[in-house]
Design a protein around this nucleic acid. Structure first.
Lengths: 232, 232
DNA sequence: TCCATACTTCGACCGTAGCCGAAGCATCTC
DNA sequence: GAGATGCTTCGGCTACGGTCGAAGTATGGA
C-alpha cells in the first residue's frame, strides 16, 4: 500500500457538489469571478470563498486579481482532463443532472469544452476534416496532413504559429454528449477563436453553450459538410 | 447551471482516502477480495464492506462471487481513465504519498497500469518501438505500421485477432512516474500477457509492480534497445 | 470623503459520513 | 453437523466539513 500519487485529495475537491458545479462551469474555459461561481454553485459568497480557497490550495484553480474582482480559471489542461473524463464516465452511467430546459438542446448542439468546440457541431467538424483529408485519424490520435495545412491557411489560421508552441496541435477529446471524438489541442482552440473573430458564433453568459448566428451557421455548415447518403 | 453530467458523485467516491487506495490498487487490473481491499485501505472489514457497497452502487466496481470470496474489479476502462488522469494530475503537483520503501524503485521501474506495462520499462518499450518504426507516433496518438505488424508477429502476437476487437489497438497513456507516454490499448495488453506467458516477468502479490527474471530482463532489454549516444 | 461593490475572515451550528464492536448470514472443510 | 472463514448488517459514537450571519478589508467611483 501507499504507492503512487494521492488521488484522494483531488477526488475530495471535486466531490463536493458546489465545487463540482464550479469546476464544470470553468471547463467552459472562461475566467469567472467569485460571485459568478457562487451563483453556479448555488451557495452564498462566503461559502464560495472558502471553496475557492481550497481549490486554489489544491492547485486546481489559478486566481487573477483585476480591480476588485478575482477571476478564476482552471490551472491547466491536466486539471481539465480528469474533469472531462469524469464527465465521460458520468454520462456513460446516465448520471445526468439535466434540468431539461431550453438550454439543454443548445448545449448538445455546440458548446465549449475547455477552449475548443464540442457537441454535435464539434463532432461534425472533425468528421468533415477527416473526410476531406485535412486531418488523419490514425489509431486513437489525430494528425494534421499537408493538405490540411493548406486548408487551415485558407480559413485564416497560421499553422506555423501554432507549431511553435509546445502544446500538441491536434488532440482528440471524447465528447460526453455525442460519445464520439472532437478536435482539441491548439488547432481546435484556434478554430473556435476564428469563428468568434469572424462573428459566426458567440458565447452565452452563464453557460457553456455556443450560439451561432444564422449567417455563421450557414457558413459553418458549408465549410464542414457531411457526406450524406444518396437516397432519402 | 445544472448542465451536463454529474461529476460530484464519482468525485466523492474517489475522494475518500480508503476508497482511493482501493481503487488505485485495482488499477493494477487484478481482481481483489474484500479482505485484501480492506488491507490496502487500512480499515477493518466492516468498514471496507460499506465502502465497497458504495463503489459498486456508483458503478465503479464489478463484484464477482466465487465461493465464499467476493472479487472486485474496476467496472471498465471508463473508470480507469479518470483515475489514471487524476494520478497524472497528483503526480504533476507532487502529491505523492510514498512511504519510500524498497517497493518504490521497483514500482517506478515496471508496473501494471490497468492491464499494460508502465514505468521506466513501459516508456522504454514504446520509445524503442517508435525508433524502429513499428509504431508511428503521430500527433498525440499512436498507430501500428505495416512493419510493426511483422515485428509483433515475430514476438508471437497475432495482430489480426486484436484488430477484430472493438477496443483500440494502440493508445498512448501518460505515465505518472516518467511523465512520458507508454503503450496502452489491446496491443499494450497483449505484450504484457506475452511477457508473462514467456516467463520473462511476473506480478507481485499486493503490489502493482512487475518483477522481471534475470533472463527475462536480458531478453526484454535486447528486444527493446534504446539508441545510446556514442560517447560515454 | 463617503459610499457602494467585491471579497475574506470569524464564529457557531448542524448533518453527514466514516469508523468500529458485536452479532448475523453464507459458504467451505472436516 | 460442528467449526472455521469470508463477508454483511446493525447500532452508536465521533469528527470533519459544509453552511451561513455578521463583521472586517480592499478597491473603485462620485
Amino acid at each position: 500500500m501507499k504507492e503512487g500519487p494521492d488521488i484522494a485529495q483531488i477526488g475530495a475537491l471535486i466531490g463536493d457538489p458546489a465545487r463540482a458545479n464550479m469546476l464544470a462551469a470553468l471547463t467552459g474555459g472562461k475566467a469567472l469571478t467569485a460571485t459568478e461561481l457562487a451563483a453556479v454553485g448555488g451557495i452564498t459568497l462566503q461559502t464560495a470563498s472558502a471553496h475557492l480557497a481550497k481549490l486554489e490550495a489544491g492547485g486546481l484553480l489559478l486566481p487573477r486579481k483585476q480591480g476588485r474582482h478575482r477571476y478564476f480559471t482552471l490551472a491547466d489542461e491536466t486539471v481539465a482532463r480528469p474533469i472531462e473524463s469524469m464527465m465521460g464516465f458520468a454520462a456513460s452511467r446516465g448520471h445526468l443532472r439535466h434540468q431539461p430546459g431550453p438550454k439543454e438542446p443548445a448545449l448538445r448542439k455546440a458548446r465549449i469544452c475547455y477552449d475548443h468546440l464540442a457537441g454535435d457541431y464539434g463532432v461534425r467538424m472533425l468528421d468533415s476534416l477527416v473526410a476531406r483529408g485535412a486531418i488523419d485519424a490514425v489509431g486513437d490520435g489525430l494528425a494534421l496532413t499537408a493538405k490540411g495545412e493548406e486548408t487551415f491557411q485558407c480559413i485564416g489560421i497560421n499553422v506555423a504559429d501554432l507549431k511553435a508552441s509546445r502544446r500538441p496541435l491536434c488532440r482528440s477529446c471524447l465528447d460526453w454528449s455525442e460519445r464520439r471524438a472532437h478536435l482539441a489541442g491548439s488547432l481546435g482552440k484556434a478554430l473556435l477563436v476564428n469563428f468568434f473573430d469572424k462573428g459566426w458564433a458567440r458565447r452565452t453568459a452563464g453557460s457553456r453553450s455556443v450560439i451561432f448566428s444564422p449567417e455563421g451557421e450557414r457558413q459553418f455548415l458549408a465549410l464542414f459538410p457531411v457526406e450524406t447518403p444518396v437516397a432519402a
